[in-house]
Design a protein around this nucleic acid. Structure first.
Lengths: 340, 340
DNA sequence: CTGAAAGCGCTTACAG
DNA sequence: CTGAAAGCGCTTACAG
């Protein structure tokens, strides 16, 4: 493999000049630049990342992470991915500063962002609260040279470097296909969502509607209720729904509160009759998959979401590598009892 | 973060001595060593990998890969993972030498191994041909200081550094659960395998038997046939099986030849009646998932198999990182038309 | 048993 | 517009 030194020798210039050309720092005579580029190309020059990273240690890099992980077990796996990457990058001289927040309001998140910035982070990984004030702040951070990667939840058109997470619409479509697979051609589905105002939830439902209306006309939505991601509310809402609609023979849990819904099904003695599908394999859901109450869960590779978001930011900050895409959708996979 | 230089200063010794202690190279007075270790611990010293990798460039590292990828589309994704990792590691001064082989006999594989060794590779990633001569060779390579990682297919107790691939028994268990999910409590299953002598195939069948006999007593194996991974043979075997056993209402494809089996089902006009499950989403299988002939496929994350096996070898060779496990099982996921 | 020095491949002030 | 030199953090002969 070629090095800058070799290129410099072949071109009869110093390594500094080669560096200027290959990294577009300007101030090089065009002819010299052209010659250097040509030599580099013909030698298939690939910069040595280890050397680059080492050089960059003069000014250490730190990345701030802000997640809604408190009291939401889903984020455990995202965190695991972040920690994995974090320990990898520690060996490359990069620090990860992790902050966990309750998902209460935009204000708290803005404050947490300020705090990270004042601690001198060079980039931020964020599950954004869905509010224009957050979008505006991400925009300002970008203009100040602090890139932001959104993870798990996105805000588009706000100048974020990239989004890493699920394609929610597609995960709704997948729910349609999965339900058909399990329940067959005819089914009356009870849909239990978190909130109609949460984009992730409504996109999943939109995808689901699209899937069944296009491909599975015998499947229909018999009722829809909100549980605001709360297990107790979920229990009550499910109870009410199933009592009011005894024809329901499948339950589609769009958001959290899966455990409460299952408990309601059990309380009504309908666990044999109802086919239940949901998202994500948090511990409570695993239990319900294990004991056969839930048939299948659609997963979104949360571990990878954590790892990839850090990786994108590190590569951008440390090696000037622009993300190749705006959105990195993690794999949608289906888990049943046997492959948990 | 602490550096060796800092530790050396605090301990009043040279960096060379710190290096000797921290990397167990010996020849250091015990008291000095203890003091250095103590300081390193108290500073939470983490070696800088970038610097290490850079140092190691004095003697470049190369890794040889030997796959049965010719004419087997499954390996395309394994290859993609290898190429991804390969381009990452190119920036760290590591070359990947890729050789693709037909899965004919052990002799050809032995020759290919010899050829790689003579080219000076420092480690080998291999889909081993299942033969004692290969096991013996892996053992010899290990004793010569050339570590081998088996990928996708394993040979145990042969001194390989690690195995990266599917847990075949568990993937058979998963097939049991999946079939029950799709076909319901009662089903007569036709099993179409590659060869009873191929361990991967027989383990999947063993897992499947275990699953249905333990959890789904209404599901039974009505017939079993071999297709030797050949689509045409598969077509004929399926035709014969379904004709001889008209009661079969589910097909479990254990190995390759999925396309041929599907074509036989279609030729007999049984595509509405039969539920079909299989492994891996090679292009032909995707087509059959798209058009609804196959209900679901169990996947084994081949991309990761390729990437992880290279990564393990690189970390071992470059940074002396021992794999934490003997076996790295990739995720088992279920794919249907909607989440392909 | 220990130290001083050179080098891995790159970047970065600094000088001209 | 260009070069010489120092430095990132580690390892490796070499000398003693």
């Amino acid at each position: 493999l070629a090095t800058m030194k070799q290129i410099a020798e072949l071109a009869g210039v110093s390594r500094g000049t080669v560096d200027r050309v290959l990294n577009r720092r300007g101030s090089v005579r065009p002819e010299t630049a052209a010659r250097i580029r040509e030599i580099a190309d013909s030698l298939h020059y690939v910069p040595n990342r280890a050397a680059r990273i080492l050089t960059a240690q003069k000014h250490r890099i730190s990345i701030g992470c802000l997640l809604f992980s408190t009291e939401n077990p889903f984020f455990e796996d995202v965190l695991a991915g972040i920690h994995k990457k974090s320990s990898e990058l520690a060996g490359f001289g990069c620090d990860i500063i992790l902050r966990e927040l309750k998902m209460t309001d935009a204000k708290a998140q803005l404050d947490a962002i300020d705090s990270l910035v004042s601690e001198g982070v060079h980039g931020i990984v964020l599950t954004p609260f869905n509010d224009i004030s957050i979008a505006a702040r991400i925009n300002r951070l970008a203009s100040e040279g602090i890139p932001v990667v959104t993870v798990n939840t996105d805000i588009e058109h706000c100048g974020r470097l990239a989004y890493v997470g699920s394609d929610y619409y597609r995960s709704g479509i997948t729910a349609g296909g999965l339900l058909h697979l399990i329940a067959g051609d005819r089914a009356a589905v009870g849909v239990l969502t978190g909130s109609e105002n949460v984009l992730c939830h409504s996109e999943r439902i939109a995808g689901f509607r699209q899937s069944i209306s296009q491909d599975y006309p015998g499947i229909r939505i018999a009722a829809l209720a909100e549980n605001h991601d709360d297990d107790f509310e979920s229990f009550l809402a499910t109870q009410t729904m199933l009592t009011a609609h005894p024809e329901i023979d499948a339950l589609f849990c769009v958001a959290a509160g899966v455990y409460g819904a299952c408990k309601a099904v059990i309380a009504l003695g309908k666990q044999k009759k109802l086919k239940i599908i949901c998202y994500d394999t948090v511990p409570n859901t695993r239990e319900m998959l294990q004991n056969g109450i839930i048939s299948a869960a659609i997963c979104q590779d949360p571990f990878r979401q954590g790892a990839k978001s850090i990786e994108l930011l590190f590569d951008y900050l440390m090696s000037d590598i622009q993300p190749q895409r705006q959105q990195y959708f993690t794999d949608l996979t289906i888990k049943i009892r046997e492959n948990l």
